[in-house]
Deep mutational scan, measured.
Amino acid sequence: MGFKLLSKLLVYLTASIMAIASPLAFSVDSSGEYPTVSEIPVGEVRLYQIADGVWSHIATQSFDGAVYPSNGLIVRDGDELLLIDTAWGAKNTAALLAEIEKQIGLPVTRAVSTHFHDDRVGGVDVLRAAGVATYASPSTRRLAEVEGNEIPTHSLEGLSSSGDAVRFGPVELFYPGAAHSTDNLIVYVPSASVLYGGCAIYELSRTSAGNVADADLAEWPTSIERIQQHYPEAQFVIPGHGLPGGLDLLKHTTNVVKAHTNRSVVE
């Protein structure tokens, strides 16, 4: 069995187990497998329904001669939608809004960016022009300005110390501490036991640490421990890039980060 097929099978099995364990909360999309990078042309966006009122959005972007996937989250909030992270750029984010209108038909009224990198804030200006209120932590807003990236308009308070959590509509926002970046936030959907790890969490097929220019490698494993301790009931975990899975993604990420750190020390 090929690795790609095995990865998709694991996603399907995880979703099936969740649907059985929580039949009222989960209505997993039966329309197909989780979209992969090879299936999404740059400039297009796919939506994948995880649970009743919960979707991931998947886009792709060219970077350094390669094409990478990027995940975000959409959560229903009454007759409105909360968006977590842009679709990595203005063109993708405009396509995301169009796809949401086509498939869901509810307005996106608020959006949260989970850290300051372009795959999370690139497209904020498109959201703002569409009347979406954009939010991020003060740290993310400051770092985005320093980096020359787009800056969300509103500040999220109460997320300055490791372990801080605040309720934001249908989700809980959690600051686990520094990891992929010093400002990275985690998003949890309690009604569906869905954990969105953003770039602080890796997919299972990833074996290298990737972009760690703004990471705190020493603190990252401790931050992941905080996530595990705060959300032990999480059933569906979405990484910032690639295929979702279960809580095993947290341990896998820790292993990859520690291996990278150990290699760096040896070198």
Rank of each mutant, 00 (worst) to 15 (best):
F3T: 05
L9F: 11
L10W: 12
L10H: 11
T14D: 10
S22V: 10
P23S: 07
A25C: 10
A25E: 06
S27Y: 05
S31F: 00
Y34W: 09
Y34D: 06
S38W: 08
S38M: 10
I40Y: 15
P41I: 13
P41L: 09
V42W: 08
G43M: 14
V45P: 09
V45T: 09
L47D: 05
L47M: 08
Y48T: 05
S56H: 01
H57Y: 01
I58V: 09
D64G: 07
A66H: 03
A66S: 04
Y68A: 06
P69I: 14
S70K: 04
L73Q: 04
I74T: 12
R76L: 03
R76C: 05
R76T: 09
E80G: 11
A87F: 00
N92R: 13
T93I: 00
T93W: 00
T93K: 00
A94G: 13
I100A: 14
I104F: 02
I104G: 02
I104C: 05
G105I: 15
G105A: 06
L106Q: 08
T109G: 12
T109I: 13
A111R: 00
A111M: 07
V112H: 00
T114Y: 00
H115E: 00
H117L: 00
H117T: 00
D118P: 12
D119S: 01
D119I: 00
R120A: 02
G122Y: 11
V124A: 07
D125I: 13
V126C: 05
L127F: 01
L127Y: 15
A129T: 04
A130K: 01
G131P: 03
V132D: 04
A133G: 12
Y135R: 06
Y135I: 01
S137W: 14
S137V: 06
S137R: 04
S137P: 08
R142D: 11
R142T: 04
L143E: 09
L143D: 03
E145D: 01
V146S: 08
V146P: 02
G148I: 08
N149K: 00
N149I: 01
N149R: 06
N149G: 11
P152A: 15
T153A: 08
H154G: 05
H154V: 09
S155A: 11
L156C: 02
E157I: 15
S160Q: 07
S161D: 04
S161I: 07
G163P: 08
D164Y: 13
V166P: 06
V166H: 14
P170V: 09
V171D: 00
V171F: 01
E172M: 10
F174I: 05
G177E: 01
G177H: 00
A178E: 08
T182K: 12
D183Y: 15
L185W: 04
V189M: 14
P190Q: 04
S191C: 08
V194Y: 15
Y196C: 05
Y196P: 01
G198W: 01
C199E: 02
A200T: 12
A200I: 11
S205C: 12
S205L: 08
S205V: 14
R206K: 14
R206W: 13
T207N: 15
S208C: 08
S208E: 14
D214A: 10
D216A: 08
D216M: 04
A218R: 13
E219K: 05
E219I: 08
P221K: 11
I224S: 08
I224C: 07
E225Y: 00
H230I: 11
P232C: 01
E233L: 09
E233M: 05
E233K: 11
F236C: 13
G240V: 02
G240D: 06
L243S: 09
G245L: 14
G246K: 03
G246M: 04
L247Y: 15
L247C: 15
L249K: 10
L249A: 13
H252P: 03
T254H: 09
N255H: 03
N255Q: 09
V256L: 12
K258D: 12
K258C: 08
A259G: 07
N262W: 10
